[in-house]
Design a protein around this nucleic acid. Sequence first.
DNA 1: CTCCGTTGGTTGCATAATGAAACTGGATTG
DNA 2: CAATCCAGTTTCATTATGCAACCAACGGAG
Lengths: 155, 155
Amino acid sequence: MVKRTSFEGDSCPIARSLEAIGDWWSLLIIREALFGVRRFGEFQGKLGMAKNILATRLRALVDLGILKVAPASDGSAYSEYVLTPKGHGVFPVLVALRQWSEEFDDHPEEIATILVDRDKGRPVKKLELHAEDGRVLTAVDTTLKARPRRSRSAG
Amino acid sequence: MVKRTSFEGDSCPIARSLEAIGDWWSLLIIREALFGVRRFGEFQGKLGMAKNILATRLRALVDLGILKVAPASDGSAYSEYVLTPKGHGVFPVLVALRQWSEEFDDHPEEIATILVDRDKGRPVKKLELHAEDGRVLTAVDTTLKARPRRSRSAG
DNA sequence: CTCCGTTGGTTGCATAATGAAACTGGATTG
DNA sequence: CAATCCAGTTTCATTATGCAACCAACGGAG
């Protein structure tokens, strides 16, 4: 099999996520969708991508339950693509990517935008990972454990 | 140009991140590196990827300043790949991907591991985005602003 | 309803990236 | 200095990407 290796059956949740949204365009499509982009032509124009690629990606994202097709919205008989809750759930991933770029990019001056609190217009804080007791955790403060198997009798 | 479109000059920081780590393998390599994997063969064995792809990716990650080559470590004259601070900075991205999978995957029972606080062994909390004043922000609570141009006279 | 431009795609083909396996070369062992 | 392992590189088939051209459905003018 020379197919692009699939992580579909992989037990690592990161690999599973990448299987769904780990390609060049999907995350950018979701980013646009989070900003309210809904129409095929709008995605195509903003992202500057080929229409066939866009069509393929949109279909895949719909199949994955990240986007859903809305029959209409502004009168025209064309359909639109709107985020599902699963799609909205990608937001932290995008924020993490953005903040990584802001912190480590070699040419941060080329970054045109900052993410701000809509109410106050002030920059957001860095994403933080907390322990149950509230401590902030870095990578070395964490480790992996086998997922506790939910017994078949438990509710 | 039929080249895979590059986001190198893009002003969107998300695109810029994807340019660096938005491919199938890079994030998995970084994930392994965060767990202490350092040797070529170790990466290759754990990830089950072709050696040529691994070699290409490792070189790219080194060029990007995400990994660096350490001349030795355990006596053997081979080199190792260790994360730079920039590489460690990817951790939140991986956590975000993991949590997205945990929350929205269609088959969460196939996920083998959970991320826990090393001290307590308890699961970590969800990543949270906070405003400056501490409020938790969701996607709709945020918006983008033009990055304030740092004037050439200001320190 | 027909002409014609726009929106929303699909199809074709060239090129680049991916991947399995074979190959290379240095280091270690004996 | 032969056998073997580690760390890659090369080769070649397959797949994905991307541009361009094509096509179908819609919408307005007449």
